Simulated assay, not measured.
Amino acid sequence: MADLLAGRRVAVVHEWFSAVGGSENVFLAIADLIPHAERHVLWAEPDAPAADLHETWLARTPLRRSKALALPLMPLAWRTTKIDAEVVISSSHAFAHTVNAGDARHLSYVHTPARYVWSPDFDGRGANPLLNLPRKWLQHADVSQSRHVHAYAANSREVQERIRRFWKRDATVVNPPVDVDFYRTEKTGDDYLLGVGRWIPYKRFDLMIDIAEAAGLPLILAGGGPEEAALRAKGRNVQFEVHPTKARLRELYAGAKALLFPAHEDFGIVPVEAQAAGTPVVGLDRGGLRETVVPGETGFLADTTDPRVYAGLVTATKDLDPRRIREHAATFGHDRFAARMTEWIGDAVR
């Protein structure tokens, strides 16, 4: 990749940078492929694990503390940020794809069109009443101010379809990189069910508690978030692991009977990490899981919220082969991402 863009001024652009989650990891992975590229974000938190980040003027306002309030101004922030580059690569899940790229070749990797704007029912956080009035304007701005994008990539077929439906544009699917080498390990047990992620409503950790109860198995919830108190009040046979290290998370994956994932995700990195440890996934038959789980081989999917159905699928995982599960997870590693990104960027800049 560095050779492909050698001698060219390149900028990599991302939304806010408050923690290292799925989209931030993709942004850093893209930047690592192009070491000489400038890095631009709306704002970065003081403890952001990344250096040399150029911030927009939103970083100097109190709005950085509230994404919902800042959202209507994000297109303006990107349009008034002039980036001096010949190639701009945006990592977008809100409005980064509307950045003022000038005469540069603009390529946009999309995690999802902004849920708050296009799919408020998908994620309850988008139902903020403050967004009701500006939503139509934001939809118009999202389309009209991104017509200069030369090529789109989507992190999944699910997002590819949203780009086609909302923006009327085609996109190449490039799955995000997963650290499968780190999480690849031997199974150490099958004593409990596991849920991993941010404890927010749409992730359905409440349903995981019901599934574990129906299956008669203990449950470990690893992560953190605003739903912690409610989940602790609901869960009886539940162990909470707050913000575990990666090493601890690998141990949890290896010892679980199955990872529960009854949520509609754009892609879903956690299920791939679990499979890298040989652990099957029992989840919702929607979104990214349709691309990352092979039903009957690496897990089972169900299009329901009935915990008894999921409990039955948990029982069926006893017949799955951990070696086959690990082999499948290996197809989502960093090397595959780098190769696909290099191919996509090469085609788009030539």
Rank of each mutant, 00 (worst) to 15 (best):
V180P: 08
Q145L: 13
P177Q: 03
T172L: 09
S146E: 09
V159D: 08
V180M: 04
V159E: 08
D142I: 05
Q145C: 10
V149M: 11
R157P: 15
W167K: 13
V173T: 00
A151Q: 14
N155W: 10
D142Y: 08
P177V: 01
N155V: 11
K168I: 00
P177I: 00
A153S: 14
R157I: 07
Y183N: 06
R169P: 13
V173E: 04
V143T: 10
E158T: 15
D179T: 00
A154Q: 10
S156C: 07
W167Q: 11
H150F: 09
D181G: 10
D142H: 11
D142R: 15
S146M: 08
D181R: 08
K168G: 05
V174F: 00
F182M: 05
R165Y: 03
V149N: 15
R164D: 03
V173W: 03
V143M: 12
F182R: 13
T172E: 13
Q160T: 01
V143D: 09
E158P: 08
V173M: 03
H150R: 13
A171M: 04
P176V: 02
R164M: 02
A154H: 13
F166S: 04
D170T: 05
N175M: 06
N175A: 11
Q145A: 08
H150W: 14
A154P: 13
T172P: 11
N155E: 14
R147M: 07
R164N: 06
E161P: 09
A151D: 14
Q145H: 12
A151N: 13
F182Y: 09
F166V: 00
Y152R: 14
Y183E: 02
Y183K: 07
Y152K: 10
D181T: 04
I163W: 06
A151L: 13
N175G: 04
S156N: 11
E161Y: 10
V173F: 02
V143F: 13
H150P: 12
R169W: 01
V173S: 01
